[in-house]
C-alpha cells in the first residue's frame, strides 16, 4: 500500500516537471520526484517491528531494518542537493537574462 503512495508521489513530481510552465515549479517537481524515490528505497529495506540499524552497547543484532538502503539514500540525498543547487542557480541567471520564469517565453533556441 505504501508503495503506491510512493508511485503517486513520483507521478506528482513528474507531472510538475513535465506540465508546469514556471521554472521554479519545475524544480519543486524535481525535488518531489527525488523524495518519492528515496522514500521508496528506504521502504524496501523496512521490516515490521524492526529497529534502527545502530550497533549500540548491550544490544543484540536482531530485527534490524536493512541499513544498506539508508546509506544509499543518504548518498542520493546529497546528489539531489547538488543538482537542486545547480538548477536553482541556473534558474536565477535565466531570470536575470530573460526577466521571466515562464518557459513559454524562454525560447531563443530553436527546437
Amino acid at each position: 500500500m505504501l508503495y503506491f503512495l510512493c508511485l503517486i508521489l513520483f507521478c506528482v513530481g513528474l507531472y510538475g516537471v513535465l506540465r508546469k510552465r514556471n521554472l521554479v515549479k519545475m524544480i519543486i517537481g524535481l525535488g518531489i520526484m527525488e523524495y518519492a524515490m528515496n522514500l521508496f528505497f528506504v521502504l524496501l529495506g523496512y521490516r515490521f517491528d524492526g529497529r534502527a540499524p545502530i550497533y549500540a552497547k548491550d544490544q543484540e543484532i536482531l530485527n534490524m531494518v536493512d541499513p544498506l538502503p539508508q546509506a544509499l539514500v543518504l548518498t542520493s540525498i546529497v546528489i539531489g542537493l547538488g543538482v537542486t543547487a545547480l538548477v536553482i542557480s541556473i534558474a536565477v541567471r535565466i531570470y536575470e537574462k530573460y526577466g521571466t520564469f515562464d518557459i513559454t517565453k524562454i525560447k531563443r533556441l530553436k527546437g
Partner: peptide
Amino acid sequence: GLFAIFLALVVLERSK
C-alpha cells in the same frame, strides 16, 4: 560548501 552555495545565491540575487 553548503554555506558557499547559499552565499553565491544571495550575492547573485543582490547583484541585479
